[in-house]
């Protein structure tokens, strides 16, 4: 059976290449039909805000890549509740169907994956 991988994305979409490269790694695994999940933590939760205007920073929108996750079979998406609250973000305003987890739930989640990679 294929090993499962949880990718933890911790950077905002405008903070360099990190967010995009974490997504690329997830999508590449999805393309191979591997069991991949994504956890957005710390500034990574900013990737989940809707109505972003990346063109004002002369950047490309990552929302298309995020929407592609389901096409690549990556259905298990999680976000840290603490990180969302710290940043004043409302769960209902997120543009991806993420499951919001407490720190305790994240600890349990980490144990259920064969591999955990922070990108």
């Amino acid at each position: 059976m294929a090993k499962s991988m949880l990718i933890i994305s911790r950077q905002a979409p405008w903070a360099g290449m990190s967010a995009r490269e974490a997504l690329d790694a997830a999508l590449a695994g999805g393309a191979f039909d591997l069991p991949i999940a994504l956890l957005f933590m710390e500034d990574g939760v900013f990737q989940l805000t809707s109505s972003q205007q990346p063109s004002r920073l002369e950047q490309k929108d990552t929302s298309a890549n995020l929407q592609a996750l389901s096409l690549f079979g990556i259905e298990h998406l999680y976000a840290s509740k603490v990180s969302l609250i710290e940043r004043g973000m409302e769960t209902h305003a997120l543009h991806l169907p993420v499951k919001v987890l407490t720190s305790e739930e994240i600890r349990s989640l980490l144990r259920t994956y064969d591999l955990v990679v922070t990108l």
Binding site: A2, K3, M5, I8, R10, Q11, S18, D24, A25, A28, G29, A31, F32, L34, L115, V117, T118, L119
Partner: peptide, 22 residues
């Protein structure tokens, strides 16, 4: 080469060990 090479190797390995900042 592509990122698929990472996933492929991981599936063939007993352990993936990552180094460096996120």
């Amino acid at each position: 080469s592509g990122l698929g090479q990472l996933h492929e190797a991981v599936q063939q390995s007993d352990r993936l060990v990552c180094f460096g900042d996120s």
